[in-house]
Amino acid sequence: MSEQSHNAAASHDDHDHDIASHIKTYLIIFGALLLGTVITVLMYYVDFSSMAVTVGVALFIASIKAFLVAAYFMHLMSEKKLVYSLLVISAIFFTGLMGLTLWGTHDTPKNTLMKTVYVP
């Protein structure tokens, strides 16, 4: 057809093998994500004595899954520096938002009359 798409096709041929190995990676990640989902659900039925452990385990598995999606499906394993710096900035501000908000709501003056009472 046109010169341009011919060029594109030619360059594709060089990468064909590369892409084929990518596809294999994608399928492995797919399996890992499904496995992760099953493990998360199973953990729900395990009775950890503390809620903190329950939350920690669930979020740990979710973070691994999220890492797999971001690193491989979103190609963050081999992305440009600009994208990394952008994500670092928003990660810092997100941490600030969540951390300072929680801290700000829970560091209240002690020994005052404030307390929460549930009135049905």
Partner: peptide, 21 residues
Amino acid sequence: SFIVWAHHMYLTGMGTKVATF
């Protein structure tokens, strides 16, 4: 500018540690 916002909220019953931060 992203980590100064609660200086608008000193009067909300905020604790001294957060207020100092």
